[in-house]
């Protein structure tokens, strides 16, 4: 699809409809069934008792957080793929999420588990990992798939060791929470978290979208981008910092939710093409809907028990990744 202002508007409008549908579906489905009449009453603010608490205090915050986390991770995936010129680049696979998780776990270890300090350390962990990945990528200009995968595996192995160390030294009570968090869990979601993530997502997403045309050129290679007028090093630095911030905050709130940043931008590219002016907003919105649906599935598949949503995304994403790896020789990406 040709990236024009009306096209972008139209696509966003359509995807907002999808986000709304996913939200309604997520509110409706669950272990405790909600009748349409109850749901209507809740919308009008007339519902009281347990169903109202379930909708307002459990399902709604969780869905809002899922939407924001999904949007962030998808945007980050799209940016990494654009700059590193590799369709398999994604925060989780690159190890950036692992770095952020490591920072967040260290915050727990040091006993400074406030939302902000945890996010800050997670951000530091993400930044550190991004520049580690860059140091590997810098030598070639683009990140070869094998290098990317191996680097990510090694970085993740290292951070897993750190995290396991923290877990081994922690008390039993916290263990279940930490483990669930590690697998990417939204069960502890509350509105305060959504309020922290909302401005971060909007500002970060806005900055990323501002650089959509730069990303189009960076996707061709650094030299071409510089020759055509992009201040390559500065733009990359800004984008990597913004992406690290998004990953850091996201991971400290919801743990390791993998593969969203891989699947969502890929599906968007197949349908809308590669132009970042369409790809970025569409990925953000589609990612929001996608993670809301995935989390709804995580809550309902083995009801009344629930899975961490990271289990659902990994179950979908890992085969997806292998599929992409297998047809790596395809001529565009």
């Amino acid at each position: 699809m040709k990236a024009t202002a009306p096209a972008v508007g139209l696509v966003c409008l359509g995807l907002m409809g999808l986000v709304l549908l996913a939200l309604l579906l997520g509110l409706w489905l669950g272990t405790v069934s909600i009748t349409p009449a109850q749901f209507w009453d809740w919308l009008c603010g007339r519902l009281n008792g347990a169903p109202a608490i379930i909708l307002s205090d459990l399902r709604l915050p969780r869905l809002l957080l899922a939407a924001l986390v999904g949007a962030c991770l998808s945007l980050c995936g799209a940016v990494f793929q654009g700059i590193l010129r590799n369709p398999l680049a994604e925060p989780f696979i690159l190890g950036v999420s692992g770095g952020a998780a490591c920072g967040a776990v260290l915050a727990l270890l040091m006993g400074v588990a406030s939302l902000w300090s945890q996010s800050l350390l997670a951000f530091a962990g993400a930044v550190g990992t991004v520049f580690m990945v860059l140091a590997v990528a810098r030598r070639r200009g683009s990140l070869e798939t094998s290098t990317l995968v191996l680097t990510g595996v090694m970085i993740n192995a290292f951070f897993t060791a750190v995290i396991m160390f923290v877990i081994a030294t922690t008390t039993d009570q916290k263990l279940h929470a930490i483990l669930f968090w590690l697998y990417g869990d939204l069960a502890a979601a509350n509105l305060r978290q959504a309020y922290l993530l909302l401005p971060v997502t909007l500002v970060g997403g806005g900055v990323i979208f501002f650089f959509a045309r730069h990303l189009n050129l960076l996707n061709a290679g650094d030299q071409a981008a510089a020759a055509l007028g992009v201040a390559v090093e500065r733009v990359k630095l800004i984008l990597f910092l913004v992406v690290s911030l998004l990953v850091g905050v996201t991971v400290s709130l919801s743990g390791l939710i993998g593969f969203v940043g891989l699947m969502v931008p890929h599906l968007v590219r197949i349908t809308l093409g590669h132009d970042h002016r369409l790809l970025l907003p569409a990925s953000g919105l589609f990612g929001a809907a996608f993670l809301m649906l995935a989390d709804t599935a995580a809550r309902t598949v083995i009801s009344p028990a629930a899975l961490p949503v990271g289990v659902v995304t990994a179950a979908l994403g890992a085969p997806f990744f292998v599929l992409l790896l297998a047809k790596r020789g395809s001529r565009w990406w």
């Binding site: 010129r85 189009n216 996707n219 061709a220 093409g273 590669h274 565009w332 990406w333």
Partner: peptide
């Protein structure tokens, strides 16, 4: 070149 972009883009 960005391989996924069309010639026109």
């Amino acid at each position: 070149l960005a391989p996924g972009f069309t010639v026109a883009e």
